[in-house]
Amino acid sequence: MGRIFKERTPVNEALRLFLENISTLRKTEEVPLESCPGRVLAETIISERDVPHYRRAAMDGYAVRAVNTLGASPANPVLLQLSDQIEEGGAIWVHTGAAMPEGADAVIMVEDTATAGNLVEIRAQVYPNRNVGQIGEDIKKGDRVFEEGHLLRPCDAAVLASLGFDRVKVFKKPVVAVIPTGDELVSRKKCVDVPPPGKMIETNGLMSALYVKKWGGIPRCTEIVPDNPDSIKRAVEANLDADMILLSGGTSVGKRDHAPEVLAALGKLLLHGIGASPGKPTALGIINSVPVVCLPGYPVAGLVALYFFVRPGIRKLAAIPEVPEPILKRRLAAKISSKIGYVNFIRVAFEGDKVRPLTGAGAGILSSVAKADGYVLVPEDIEGYDEGEEVDVFLIE
């Protein structure tokens, strides 16, 4: 392929094309309830029991027959006998959640009573089933509790536990191979001092792996691969058992940029070059049904590609349902300038009830992301936003 970007694919079109070439994984596994939050349910849950399975007191107080409290009030209390059985004129103390005694059909709250020896003074009238939890009032036997594809939360784990589950079937997480490339890179695990000029500590692989884990995948990181087509080819071939491959670096059009060429030689290069700034050198493709994302080496450009393509790609692989992304409405404390023809990823920091775009935030300035609270996406057909304009702010995870 040529050494220039012959075309730039709009971001939305690039994402559509990429997702069309990804098939959802259907592999399942059972996990304990303690580790199920954030996992996607791989079965429909139908209750095989009632919850609760017994009539229970919903308040601390006295279990009574409602008919025995008729007309009771603070000015005209009714006296009932303390007992261990509900008989005519009897009352039994119950705690919240305790089983209702045989014959009782209501609970009078302790606040509406007073005791005198073996007598209980009832100061309020109750009706049948007042302050009583009925069998199956939470979940009835035969209820469809969760559908397949539900994203499990801690509260869902509690519901499953109440149904008698100890483990639950979920879809397996996709394995994502992260392959950092670059002759200039040195491993942070092997570098004990400041690298010499021309060398730098590899950080994009770490960032990519952590985002993969955060978004529901299992990262598998390789050693740094040199800028050599054969070396990159061997690294990719060794990781084709993964569910997705991320090649970090070597995506532009310089003499040491080989990632897109290797992708095209091994499989299908869907596109090289997207209408995003930063992030233009991103390449997307498929090798033996395995989606491949070539991330630009500049860290912020790589981050943009992670957000735009890797996150939705993992969600499709893992059958993770779409959850609306939190968007904050804020006014700009300063003007934003952007390039026409590109979706511009503008980092911003909160400043009171406004946001301020960060200056000097080039694609190679990774600290600009750490200093930012969120980002603004300026569409391709807009030249920028003026100070004071209201914009949508996406939080940086």
Results as ranks from 00 to 15, higher is better:
3 R>V: 07
8 R>F: 15
17 L>Y: 09
45 I>M: 05
49 R>N: 02
50 D>Y: 05
54 Y>H: 12
58 A>E: 12
61 G>M: 00
64 V>D: 02
68 N>W: 12
71 G>F: 05
83 S>I: 07
84 D>F: 12
87 E>F: 13
87 E>M: 14
87 E>Q: 11
97 G>I: 01
99 A>F: 05
99 A>G: 09
100 M>R: 06
100 M>L: 15
105 D>G: 00
107 V>F: 08
109 M>C: 13
122 I>S: 06
123 R>H: 14
129 N>H: 11
131 N>E: 12
134 Q>C: 04
136 G>E: 09
147 E>S: 15
147 E>F: 13
150 H>I: 08
151 L>N: 08
151 L>Y: 06
153 R>P: 06
155 C>I: 13
165 F>C: 07
167 R>V: 11
170 V>H: 02
171 F>E: 01
176 V>K: 05
177 A>F: 10
178 V>L: 05
179 I>N: 03
180 P>E: 03
192 V>A: 10
192 V>E: 13
198 G>W: 07
202 E>Q: 13
205 G>E: 05
206 L>D: 03
206 L>S: 07
212 V>R: 02
216 G>Y: 04
217 G>K: 06
217 G>I: 10
222 T>K: 03
226 P>E: 09
229 P>I: 02
230 D>Q: 14
230 D>K: 14
235 A>C: 08
236 V>H: 10
236 V>T: 04
241 D>S: 14
242 A>L: 09
249 G>I: 06
252 S>M: 02
252 S>H: 10
258 H>A: 11
260 P>Y: 04
260 P>H: 07
261 E>N: 09
262 V>Y: 03
267 G>W: 07
267 G>N: 05
268 K>T: 15
269 L>P: 12
269 L>Q: 07
275 G>R: 09
276 A>K: 03
279 G>P: 08
284 L>V: 07
284 L>I: 08
289 S>E: 15
290 V>M: 06
292 V>W: 06
293 V>K: 03
293 V>C: 03
297 G>A: 08
300 V>M: 05
303 L>I: 13
305 A>M: 08
306 L>Y: 04
310 V>Y: 03
314 I>G: 01
315 R>G: 03
322 E>F: 15
323 V>F: 00
329 K>N: 13
329 K>Y: 09
334 A>F: 00
335 K>S: 11
337 S>C: 09
342 Y>G: 00
347 R>T: 09
349 A>D: 01
351 E>M: 10
352 G>P: 01
356 R>W: 06
358 L>Q: 03
359 T>S: 14
366 L>E: 01
369 V>E: 05
373 D>M: 08
381 D>E: 10
384 G>R: 00
385 Y>D: 01
